[in-house]
Design a protein around this nucleic acid. Structure first.
Lengths: 240, 240
DNA sequence: TCTATATACGAACGTCGTTCGAGTCAAGGT
DNA sequence: ACCTTGACTCGAACGACGTTCGTATATAGA
């Protein structure tokens, strides 16, 4: 099957589930699309998304870059496959109207952890078309939770979009900072302590609030900032 | 002055404002950093951020790519300059405790319009270090509005971060979709009508909520979705 | 056994960000 | 009037990138 057709199938049909695949057959060591996505994820996990190159990926599979194009339309297509794979791993709870908020934040935390496990991959998520079957499965699950919580359909629909956007952006930012620490390109990297120092060094007459609340601006261990923002967003959407 | 020094100055000192610059002097047609950023913005405005290439930018300035590196450290540095430039154009209102919400959404709308005017540039914004003087000026202004609204300092600090993240992600998504329409790479582009059709075509037993609320999921003319999300976020942060 | 088809892959194309090094100018001290 | 100094210009090149072409190969069905 053509990779173009494969991609179309992911976006159109809900997996016809026909007869089992006719077994791969190749010259020496067959390459399956699963192998491609798996090694791509392993590459991202250890070296970051910006290290995911058609050439490096091909090298990890002991072949040349041209071989990948038998299994993947594009690099964009590969990105879609990877995000779809990540979505597969999310467990979407059966909506419980008494605990829908916790369930929803739990799903978002799962997404966050997947994104952070593969640093920088959320950039691909932001660039994706939202009709991939695996991703609409996630949207469906989040939508169900919001509706179970009594949120109006319009607010719920927009809330799903906003939450996913925020999670992706949050993870992308974190990954970029972490990546800079690795490369440590001189004055580009900024650890929180250095950040606090810089903000505190600003002239108080021009930046009164920033200098006064330096502590709050740089506060938050772990995912405090994430948790607070998510709670605020869900609260905000719940009351409209 | 070295471009590295220039960048450091943007992040450290609040513009010492010494004697006026000693006037440029060059062989034929001097290139100023302002010219670089201006033509870069013009390029993005007409062809999109992905068309911003050191080579194309140099070509627009009638020179070779090497010449740019006398004014700019990096492409990342160029990105910072561009975002800084955009921040300059934002007008930050004097906080009015009676209208702080409208003022805050107004600032966010300004950011949004600047991002959308230069399609794809928000990608650079997401990757930036947040100590550039122009960007902390914006944060300071937004922080002032939230504090004037009685929001607690901690919530206000995180709200600024969340709002800027969301605006950037929202604009990036829109720009990507628009860019796909231009390239119109076959089945990659998806207009809202096609999106609705695809969602409606999903099997109702697997995606009950998605198929039932297709209208809400694809609704929203103009920036309805943006406005609603911003209002929800501000509401959510205001009550904690 | 023969043919069609899907896959494998070396080689190449064009583009990208960035660096090197030789060259060119103008200002300031002497 | 000369020379040093420092900033700027820019042709050429490097290595890496995504992608395509053409050909080789191995299996599935005839």
């Amino acid at each position: 099957m053509n990779p173009r057709e494969r991609r179309a199938a992911r976006h159109q049909l809900p997996a016809p589930e026909g007869e089992p695949r006719p077994k791969p057959r190749r010259r020496k060591a067959p390459i399956t699309p699963e192998q491609v996505t798996d090694t791509a994820l392993r590459l991202i996990e250890t070296e970051g998304y910006e290290a995911l190159t058609m050439r490096r990926l091909a090298g990890a599979l002991d072949t040349g870059p041209a071989s990948l194009y038998a299994h993947v339309v594009n690099k964009a297509d590969l990105d879609e496959l990877l995000i779809g794979r990540l979505c597969t791993r999310l467990t979407l709870p059966e909506p419980d109207p008494a605990a829908w908020r916790e369930q929803l934040t739990g799903v978002c935390a799962q997404v966050r952890d997947q994104y952070l496990k593969y640093p920088g991959i959320s950039r691909a998520a932001l660039a994706m078309v939202h009709t991939d079957l695996e991703t609409v499965r996630v949207s469906e699950g989040m939508l169900a939770l919001l509706l179970a919580g009594g949120v109006s359909p319009q607010a719920a629909a927009w809330a799903v979009d906003a939450l996913l956007l925020y999670v992706a952006a949050y993870c992308l930012e974190i990954s970029i900072v972490k990546q800079r620490e690795v490369h440590n390109e001189a004055d580009w990297a900024v650890d929180p302590e250095e950040l606090r120092r810089r903000l505190a060094a600003l002239p108080a007459e021009d930046f009164p609030h920033t200098t006064r609340h330096t502590a709050e601006l740089t506060a938050g261990k772990g995912h405090d900032r994430f948790d607070c923002t998510l709670a605020a967003m869900i609260d905000g959407f719940a009351r409209r």
